[in-house]
Design a protein around this nucleic acid. Structure first.
Length: 308
DNA sequence: GTCCCGGCAG
DNA sequence: CTGCCGGGAC
């Protein structure tokens, strides 16, 4: 195990051979995803946002029908927020905030970039919901103009193959240094493919024909430890689950009084109980602060609806 | 239970 | 830097 100070790429390893081996391995065979056949930055951004914390297999259908409904950034920018969030929840795409971010990003492209999609990682990061990973991914896959992406896959691969210390700035430096200049499109696809089908948590080096076996520190030593990924809190019964239910229920109605919404969110809802009106009002109020839900006074008291 | 091509707000 | 954000698949 090495430390992060002065970590340098192993001197006895031929970087160019490492690069070529991976690119050739990728080009010989890889999974076909529809977003790997487009260079439209909007279409790629949609795929990247959907892919965050959601398995790729489940994204394919959602991606196609999302683009069917909102084919361009301009079309999405004109959509109602409620429709975009409603689509998100009905396709079980997770974190509804990401639907809002995507909607906002589309509006930024129209308003701040005059309809011309940004092409550099720095400009892309100005879009809502786009951080370092997504910016480099879109710049790479749409414009072949990105830096090395660093996600949990890439970290795991570098950590195992070259014993890179588990430290974000080091991962970034090493990933950047390993990427062949001007080839971000194929490279970032290839290294993430490696993490996805060969160097998974439980690795399949031989079965997947990993192209780095001859250099791989883990393959040599048999120690396939991976960097720690913070384990997520329990989902069942969580606040996140309840938020999801609120959005999912509101999608089916124009508006709903809190005491009508409550029982559809929790079977044990009772207005004055522990998980009652106060609890629900706070939950919905936070969703309102997030821009996902609206909360209004009416004759029947407080009513909630998806935010337009 | 654990994983999944992160990012935002405080 | 920390807490938080959904939900299906395995």
């Amino acid at each position: 195990m090495s430390t992060s100070e002065e970590w340098t790429f192993p001197a006895d390893v031929d970087r160019e051979a490492v690069q070529n081996a991976l690119v050739e391995w990728y080009e010989a065979d890889h999974r076909e995803f529809p977003w790997r056949r487009t260079e439209d930055p909007y279409e790629i951004l949609v795929s990247e946002v959907m892919s965050q914390q959601t398995q790729l297999g489940r994204v394919v259908e959602a991606w196609e029908s999302f683009l069917d409904r909102w084919p361009t950034a301009a079309a999405l920018a004109d959509a109602d927020r409620a429709d975009v969030v409603g689509f998100w929840t009905s396709h079980s795409l997770g974190y509804n905030n990401r639907a809002k971010y995507l909607h906002e990003a589309a509006q930024q492209v129209e308003a701040e970039f005059d309809g011309a999609f940004p092409e550099t990682p720095d400009e892309l990061q100005e879009l809502m919901g786009v951080g370092p990973y997504t910016a480099n991914a879109v710049a790479s896959f749409a414009f072949n103009n990105g830096d090395a992406v660093v996600d949990t896959n890439v970290k795991r691969v570098l950590y195992r193959a070259f014993d890179v210390p588990d430290d974000d700035p080091t991962f970034e430096r090493v990933a950047g240094g390993l990427m062949p200049a001007g080839e971000s499109r194929v490279w970032n696809n290839a290294i993430m493919e490696l993490g996805g089908v060969a160097c998974e948590k439980t690795p399949s080096c031989d079965a997947a024909g990993c192209p780095w076996r001859e250099w791989c520190h883990a393959y040599q030593t048999g120690d396939f430890t991976a960097p720690d990924v913070p384990t997520q809190p329990e989902f069942e019964g969580s606040r996140r689950q309840m938020r999801g239910r609120v959005v999912s229920v509101l999608k089916e109605y124009d508006e709903l009084a809190l005491d009508t919404l409550g029982p559809r969110v929790r079977v044990d809802y009772s207005p004055d109980g522990e998980h009652g009106r106060e609890w629900l009002r706070e939950l919905v109020s936070d969703l309102a602060d997030d821009g996902l839900v609206e909360l209004d006074e009416s004759d029947e008291g407080l009513v909630a609806r998806l935010q337009r």
